[in-house]
Design a protein around this nucleic acid. Sequence first.
RNA 1: GCCGAAGUGGCGGAAUUGGCAGACGCGGGGGACUCAAAAUCCCCUGCCCGUAAGGGCGUGCGGGUUCGACUCCCGCCUUCGGCACCA
Length: 736
Amino acid sequence: MTEYNFRQIEETILKKWEQTDIFKSCEDKKRDKFYILEMFPYPSGRIHMGHVRNYAIGDVVNRYLRMKGKNTLHPMGWDAFGMPAENAAIKSGIHPAKWTYENIDYMKKQLKRLGFSYDWDREITTCIPEYYRWNQWIFLKMLEKGIAYRKSAVVNWCPHDMTVLANEQVIEGRCWRCDTPVVQKEIPSWFLRITDYAEILLDDLEELKDNWPEAVLTMQKNWIGKSVGATVRFPVENSTAVIEVFTTRPDTLYGVTFMAIAPEHSLSLELSKGTEQETDVEDFVQKYLTMSTRERNIVEEKEGVFTGRYAINPLTGERIPIYIANYVLWGYGTGAIMAVPAHDERDHEFAKKYSIPIKPVIQPPEEWDFGEKAYEGEGVLINSDGFDGLHSAQAKEKITQLLEEKGIGEKTVNFRLRDWNISRQRYWGTPIPVVYCDSCGIVPVPEEQLPVILPENVQFTGMGNPLEKNEEFVKTECPKCRREARRETDTMDTFVDSSWYFLRYCDPKNEKEPFSTEKTDYWMPVDLYIGGIEHAVLHLLYSRFFTKFLKEIGLVNVKEPFVKLLTQGMVLKKWVKIEKLLEILHVSSDDSIETLIGKLTFYGDITDAKVENTTIKEFMEKNHLTLNDNAKLLFDKLNIPQNILREFEEKYGKSDKMSKSKHNTVDPDEMIKKYGADTIRLYILFAAPPHSSFDWTDSGIEGAHRFLKRVWNFVSEKLEEIKGVEYSREDFKKSA
RNA sequence: GCCGAAGUGGCGGAAUUGGCAGACGCGGGGGACUCAAAAUCCCCUGCCCGUAAGGGCGUGCGGGUUCGACUCCCGCCUUCGGCACCA
């Protein structure tokens, strides 16, 4: 019997796999293909347990199908552009490229050591010109087809750092880096017209129904947010102005008792000019325009101001007061609403606050107090002239028809989905391949001049976009008139990179086109796509959009990229706050360290512990610890063995996603050293079904390790007996 | 508020189609080996009553369908996740 020496076993077999190129795959028309893909990682530094789980799941499926004779494609790559690399450059002066490539090297070694069955010959790195040139190529195709366009857009802007901030980088209305109050600024940006595809992106979800998780389908549906209704135009009294609104309830048009427009609406200041309300309106609008998006989200109370002006209900001729209200969104519909307090809870709340009449036009099925709340359901119409007695469904149609006949409105479908702003005022991304020329305007870089290479020699000051200050890059020649021109310095959102990488894997070394259609015809669609639920909307929606566009221009022949989607659960780990630990031990932070250590002697050998003559509180202050920190940190400082904490964690701990800030991570490298890759993979696959999350426990991984040892011992014991015994696949099937 | 997912032993979780509930692992108990310990191996381990044979109860709660329900239907409760003034 030999000992289970996982290190030797694993290293020997890894070498063998490497030498024999065992996981290499190529097209073979005679065999059934299966494309299995896991979402590629951002090279953040090291592999974490979430990655290990994601890839272990994909790996086991790939191996199983290969053994069954399928011709599988199982590639891996790097989502290598992005902000962390640039932030590292600003903070510690390391070039983003160096930082990124070093991380890739390290993480690739980790993945190989874990023994995942990838065809590394197909490796993709999105930050190399050989990849991103095709981002630029696709962008040019989109520009040609009118799918890419440039317009002014409102963004979060830090006036100190002179840069655009993502919503996540705005902390309580201030810049995350320099604490300067963030302002809304309008700057020209590049957009992709994903809204052109809203309807088809929604409709084709139907096709994915059986193979995608319900949760993801719903999130996409909500994100696209289709609603069917009508546009209605309300003329403003004594004016040529018209307020256009969108409503899903044209059946309540007779119940409109006021109108409300968003503070950003072009009419908001204009309407009140010359009325007594002028200054009130100015103050109100000013207040809301200077508020950050975040601050505005915090305001819960409905608030508004009367403009002093009236609109005319185009069906009834009634005079309707016009308000400016904080609950009307500028980004949805027309930024103006017809308000029906009797049948909309929000309008009801506002009407009550400002004593606006409430006029019921739908008969509720039961006794109803309209002073108390709105009836939002459908029903039979009342107080609606010729439409009385009709049910909402019919009334919607009839009233919309009347609006169309009179030319004061029409049936409208509205989507929540916005066009995709891909402009980033950042260095570490794909340069947008256009040139600005004083005489020719916006000029696309000709295809044969691609790629527009991201220059290496730039300064990272954290102020503005480093590309803008690189004269060599900016100054160029207009492709049309040959006169001096300036290059676009915006780079692309990194979601562009990941919107088509699964196609590039089919043909990763192609130098003439993004990929050959012949190859994607063989491999696409991806049969099984595995990744985290956090990509439920953006990445998966963008990939679907890109696939549809590329199909339209004849590059691929599938309309959906991913047949089956598996969203794997998270790897959690229980942890105990210092506060909780003290509570369990019945120790107060005013007690001495000695008392704490005394209590802990019941839980194991702590003879090496560091005893200090202070209170727990003082000790914690000295070591910059708070009651909310992980008790693990306190144990480290006191030199108490970690395994003593285990009992507290497993019994009293709170499960949370592994994260550095909570110090509840488990490092895959350490686990490999201690137990080997097979143990980790077995444990992860065994602990829970792939879609549900699970708590990582030390005892669990030890159990998995013992199991492997037992298997090894059993086989090595019987090895002598089975030596020389011949068997065939058929025998094996029979005995099974 | 709306949408989605899930509730099974002391714990993580099995039971893919309505057919032996609790696989496997952790923990616990007992034993073997050992001077002893660790490691390893074997047996037991849902709860209650009973010395035992045996019996009763059990998949969040309350109903229903069925020869048969963790699984299907109706109504509730709880937890977690997503979206959130979308007119």
